[in-house]
Amino acid sequence: MPRLKLRVADLVRCGALLLLAAFLVAPQRFAPLFAPLTQFGAPPIYDQGNLLSLALAHLGLVLLAVAASACVAVALGILVTRTAGAGFLPLSRALVNIGQTFPPVAILAIAVPIVGFGARPTLIALFAYGLLPIFENTIAGLRACPPAVLEAADGMGMSAAQRLWGVELPLALPMILEGVRLSLVISVGTATIGSTVAAKGLGEVIIAGLLSNNTAFVLQGGLVTGLMAILLYDAVTVMERRCLHGLPRV
């Protein structure tokens, strides 16, 4: 039974990916679907830019920002779980929390006068927003390592670095990836507001639709963003399963 279930999941996965790809490569083919949503002969498919390049720019922005959040959050998480770095936990947590409690729109507003319009303020907002889930999951994952396993690692004569890379991080990896997945999904959605400060992305499509009262545009932007979020979520879930080696979850 589980084999069959896996196949169905794979089919849905491939189907969603193909649908997204088809729409981005040849959006005009889908015009009849969106036509009923338009009024006064407005174009049913976004025509003020290439949807594929917008989607890729959107994805690139998200991946870059989340990669940066992951590097910083995992490094911080490692630091504060070392005996020497434990004192930094409250400070790190406060900093990371600011990134999450400060609305991305507010960060955009502050960042634009400093770094100008375009992708940069959006990257900063997404980076700050994505830190918290990865940071907290890194700490939780590292703390969940069974004490007997760590004691054995020390007792075998592993150095602190060997223990970290060889034992702690591999055991914490599923948790860390879970945090990355959360950040990715949040960022895909949040990145749409980047278009308000002229970052290239799918927000452009939504905003264009809102400005011209074209529901078809809004729906296209929203659907592509949503599908992208679901597929990314799914991809990281598959990665998580891979790195478990068929182990029980710790």
Binding site: P146, A148, V149, L150, E151, A152, A153, D154, G155, M156, G157, M158, S159, V167, P170, L171, H245, L247, P248, V250
Partner: peptide
């Protein structure tokens, strides 16, 4: 670390590395 590599150490609840195979566990030292 050098010292521990030449002393065997067994603890309650074995402390085997759950992400490593039996062979990899034995090969640790």
């Amino acid at each position: 670390a050098q010292l521990r590599r030449r002393i065997g150490y067994v603890i309650q609840g074995h402390g085997l590395f759950p992400h490593r195979s039996v062979a990899e566990n034995i090969a640790t030292v």
